[in-house]
Simulated scan of single mutants.
Amino acid sequence: MSAGPTEPEQRPGRLRPTSAGAITAWSVVGLLGGWLVHAVVDRTGGTPPVVTWAQPLALLLVAAILGATAYLTWRAVHVHETRLDPQQAVNRLVLARACALVGALMAGGYLGYALSWLGVDTDLADQRLWRSLVAAAAGAAIVVTALLLERACRVRSDEDPP
């Protein structure tokens, strides 16, 4: 006799993949934050930050490292069919989830900052716009490679259909 709704039965030791809702929420928070940076700095009389090539290149480096880790993990688990050490698997899953959420935040933040420069006629507006768009794309690459790493860590259990 249960008064509340029944919850679906979950098997112990299972993690759900990072949800699209969580990634979207972090992206929206980043979008608003990036857009607010320009507005707040203008209102306080400061100078808005300049986006150098170092920021998108650093994000691309993180995406490349995640992509390489995803590929090596996928190869080890699915091609060579070796088992990862449990601690190593958990570390990679935590890394993947954290990078997916932070990558979404960064992509949204840089996109919001880029959008805040649309229609602004100042010396560095175009530079800030284009470099921010490149950084936003690099943040999106982090999200994609992090989700690939998360997917590479999946192993079939004996109960799963082939």
Rank of each mutant, 00 (worst) to 15 (best):
R97Q: 11
A98G: 12
A76H: 15
T69W: 11
L72Y: 10
A76K: 14
A100I: 03
E81M: 05
R83Y: 05
V77Q: 05
W74R: 14
R83V: 09
G33R: 03
L31G: 00
D85H: 12
E81D: 10
I65C: 09
R43F: 13
Q55M: 07
V37Y: 04
Q55L: 11
A89S: 14
W53K: 02
A68Y: 11
L60D: 03
Q55H: 03
W53G: 04
V41P: 08
R75F: 14
A58H: 00
A89M: 08
M106Q: 15
V37C: 01
W74C: 12
V50N: 10
T82Y: 11
H38K: 06
H80Q: 12
L60S: 05
V102G: 00
H78M: 07
A64N: 09
A54E: 07
V94Q: 13
R92C: 06
G67V: 08
T44D: 13
N91T: 10
V79G: 05
A39Q: 13
L32H: 00
Q55C: 02
L31A: 01
A104M: 03
L61V: 15
G33W: 01
L32P: 00
V77M: 07
P56W: 01
V94A: 13
A104K: 01
A96Q: 07
L101W: 08
T69M: 13
D42N: 15
L101S: 09
A54D: 08
V79E: 10
L84D: 10
D42S: 11
V94M: 13
Q87L: 14
T73P: 14
L60N: 05
P49F: 11
V94H: 10
A100M: 08
T47C: 05
H80G: 04
G103Y: 02
A104L: 02
A89F: 09
T44M: 12
P48N: 06
T73K: 11
P49C: 09
R43I: 02
C99N: 11
T52Q: 06
A68E: 13
Q87N: 15
A98V: 15
A64P: 11
A76D: 13
V62W: 07
A54Y: 08
G67K: 10
Q87H: 13
G45S: 06
L31H: 03
G45P: 10
L36S: 09
L36R: 05
L60K: 04
L95T: 15
L61E: 09
L36N: 03
V77I: 15
D42H: 07
T69G: 06
A76P: 04
A89E: 14
M106P: 04
L84V: 05
L57F: 06
L61N: 08
L84A: 13
P49T: 07
